[in-house]
Amino acid sequence: MSVDLEHYLIVGAILFAIGLYLTVAKRNFVGVLMGIEMMFNAVNLTFIAFSRFAESDQPLAGHVFVVFVITVAAAEAATALALAVMVYRTRDTINVDEIDLLKW
């Protein structure tokens, strides 16, 4: 009995699906952002798993890629949460159903 690549990929797939559900279905903007972060994490897990198990000349390149993903995710989270606070100031809500200025 051992843990193989497939086990990690399945965990990543389940986590990605949960994150996708949060992103599409949550009513609060912060909940949507939690879903996006969860999808980033699922992708990072698959990167690390492939880096550990797959055949490659430079296996640690996957780790470097994860470092970049974490960087971009941090920048995205900071900007998006700042946007949430700004939308709340102007419209008194961060319910994504009510932020419909572009709807005609």
Partner: peptide, 22 residues
């Protein structure tokens, strides 16, 4: 990032703490 989420939640007090689906 978790602390950032908490800040975003406490900075938007009027919109409620609900976590409902749309």
């Amino acid at each position: 990032i978790s602390i950032l989420f908490l800040f975003a939640i406490v900075l938007t007090p009027q919109s409620g703490r609900g976590n409902q689906e749309s």
